[in-house]
Amino acid sequence: MSRFAQTLMRTTQHLRGQTAKALRMQGADEPFRAPQTLLTFSSREDLQNYAIGCDTDIGGLSTAHLDLVEPTEKDNEQTRPYVKFWGEMRLGARKELEGKIRSGYAGFRSKRRRMLIGEITDDVSMHRFLALRLRAAGHPRTRNSYYVNIQTDGPVETDLWQHRLYFRREDGGWEDIYIPFDEFVLTNTGEVSQQQMTMFRERLRTIGISILGGNSGVEGPYELGIDSIRAVNEEDVPSDHARRERTVRRDAVGETRGMSIKCRAEKI
């Protein structure tokens, strides 16, 4: 299907959905607090909705792949297909560019959903947490080098909201991670912005995940399984889970605010 045909189909579907909401007078309902699925990763069609990139775009040596994985009988924690983001994290560069570029990153993000006029965005203003179901495999030293990235429909296209991903399990198993939207840090062109502001959650444009080996000098094979990404509220977060993660999140925010995030994730 051509890009124009995809845009036309997306526009038609969006207008049909908006018309249905108007006929149901959905805007007069109570604020919508139920979990909202933002990204799915269970089919080959889903894969077409993501862009992938790494430092090879500027002369680095890292690799990045995004593949659909069918669960096996041995995987008793996952019953549906999921996506595997994997590759090799390398800090070097092509010989002619050594010492001239900052390498050591890879990532993927959802593609922008453009229409004939404007684009489709997600409104998560009534939700407090970004919920991700993930499994961190690959070499253990790469598992704490992942960040989740959000781009909103703001005035500065290079603005990116980031938060580090911390995993509790060391066996590469599946786990649910909940990150408050108000703990994301605003960055621009790879640097933490001096002026922090509230995220414009009414219009989320793209969501992605990156691995930044260049920040911590980490190299090696990486692998991240992704099942789903949703927006949820307090009532959707298990109480014991919330208590365990409170300290981890606080440390993650402090570390993110105190470091330079050298990743041109907005270019992916």
Rank of each mutant, 00 (worst) to 15 (best):
V248K: 12
W174E: 04
K21S: 06
K21I: 04
Y50N: 02
A64N: 03
E77T: 08
L68G: 02
F200S: 14
A106R: 13
A252N: 07
I226E: 06
Q162W: 01
S193H: 10
L23Y: 15
R203H: 11
G172N: 07
G172C: 09
F85W: 07
S2L: 04
D75W: 04
L130K: 04
R112L: 09
L39T: 05
K262P: 01
R114T: 08
L97M: 06
K111A: 09
V69W: 08
E119A: 04
Q18L: 08
Q194F: 00
T7F: 09
R109S: 08
G190L: 02
D67Q: 10
T40R: 15
T152L: 04
R128D: 02
V69R: 11
P35K: 12
R257L: 14
M126E: 15
L68Q: 05
T63I: 06
K100M: 07
P71Y: 06
E77I: 00
I229V: 14
E235V: 14
G87C: 07
D176H: 07
S2V: 05
E45S: 08
E88H: 15
P31M: 08
H14V: 01
D176M: 13
R249V: 00
R244E: 11
E73M: 04
F108C: 06
Q18I: 10
Q6E: 12
S43K: 01
E170N: 10
I150Y: 11
L160C: 09
A136W: 09
H139D: 15
E255C: 04
L212Q: 13
Y178G: 13
R164Q: 05
Q195P: 00
R205W: 05
E183Q: 14
M115C: 15
R168S: 15
R244P: 00
L23I: 15
A34W: 06
L132R: 12
D240Y: 11
G92E: 05
R246L: 09
G220T: 08
D46Y: 05
G214F: 03
D153E: 15
Y178L: 06
T11D: 10
T7D: 03
P31T: 07
S62F: 04
T37N: 09
S216G: 07
E255K: 10
I58S: 03
G92F: 14
T158W: 02
V232M: 03
K267N: 12
